[in-house]
Write a protein that binds this DNA or RNA. Structure first.
Lengths: 211, 211
DNA sequence: AAGGAAGATGAGCCTTTGCTCAGATCCTCG
DNA sequence: CGAGGATCTGAGCAAAGGCTCATCTTCCTT
């Protein structure tokens, strides 16, 4: 053992201290995200990522304990971005009347899923079961947010706001994800937006306390 | 080269002729499906599958050109089973009044997704992009079926039956898949069934020709 | 019952890929 | 300027997994 006793690097990750290091980390994460989105999880080998990022594999492993850790970091950043987009698309929605608010909601959810659909899908495919938590947590948060928004509108008079929120968020999410995978261009179709609007309004109407 | 000139085995798959061979193929497919469902795509190595099926790897490769071909076969069988379950759960639905028909539809879609959810998910993860066609085709067929069913009910007076069918099928599918992954036990919750019912009825109501 | 086709075997080749390590290079700061 | 930490390098190890092939066994046919 050397004189300078290293503390056991339980996670052998070094946090970048100089700005150069930070740039390297960013380059690695970005390269990985690109490969993941364009060629899928299988193509995102550590060597390929390092090559694309323009660094050596050794450097990659200086900052990430293993491949999984890298994927997790990508997941974290991706969720943060989705969150930001969603929040931006929803600002001021409380002040709007119901129809306008619904339109805004539709646009927001679509925008959120548009952030990086291929990457989103690739992450779902490649993250080990135990590490989907980051993404799951975000989805739960979205449901909670919508639930709260629904509950605060007395006009809706919902019997079970949380349940309705769950149905709407998961339903719309699935609809958008499926469409994005099979007919991506269709997401621009105004008719689809109208149909989603109808689904939301209809569901809300049918979920009132006294039908 | 031997005297008996082999025709080039472009796809080196041998179709079983004796019943023994058929049994072997079934054992292999079943073993693979089990591993896929229980431990995920990564664990479904060809060697592991052969071991679980109780045959040697050589035998596996006698019937399947490569790993992908095996996965495709599993996909084919799985889709066939879902189709059968769905058809069974929908028999006689045309004769029912709307509310009852909707309940039946909800039950049918849930039943269909229950067939082998883990396997379903694993297939989506492991099938190469080019080979999701089998699954996609089935989903398209389901949408067409529902679309037709909706259009044939004059009482609904839908403006765009196909569009409404798409929204409903993809929406419900996403809802069920998400729930199955995150809170599987909740699929038995009657409240959720009611919420789905509300979503369907509401969406139908809001999608009429003249609102 | 004999020949040949169908079926089965499994050691091991070969490629891929995650990851390590011994050192080279770059920065910062006294 | 020079020491020492931060950063980077890349050949290559070891494990894993897809797949082949030479050979053996079982079954059908006549």
């Amino acid at each position: 053992m050397p004189a300078t006793a290293r503390k056991k690097p339980a996670k052998r990750r070094r946090s970048p201290i100089q700005s150069r290091g930070q740039a390297t980390v960013d380059a690695i994460v970005e390269a990985a995200a690109q490969i993941l989105a364009r060629k899928g999880p299988a193509a995102a080998t550590t060597n390929a990522v390092a090559a694309r990022a323009g660094v050596s594999i050794g450097t990659l492993y200086q900052y990430f304990a293993d491949r999984e850790a890298l994927l997790q970091e990508i997941g974290r950043r991706h969720v943060a971005e989705m969150q930001a987009v969603l929040a931006a698309a929803l600002t001021g929605i409380d002040g709007l009347a119901l129809p306008a608010a619904v339109d805004r909601l539709v646009a927001a959810i679509v925008a959120m899923h548009r952030v990086a659909p291929r990457l989103h899908q690739a992450l779902h495919q490649s993250l080990a079961r135990d590490h989907l938590d980051t993404i799951d947590a975000f989805e739960v948060a979205v449901e909670a947010m919508v639930s709260h928004a629904l509950a605060s509108r007395d006009e809706l008079d919902l019997a079970h706001p949380a349940l309705t929120a769950t149905v709407l968020v998961r339903g719309l999410g699935g609809l958008i994800r499926t469409t994005l995978r099979r007919e991506p261009e269709r997401l621009d179709d105004p008719a689809l937006a109208l149909a989603m609007r109808a689904m939301i309004l209809g569901t809300l109407g049918e979920s009132r306390r006294r039908t």
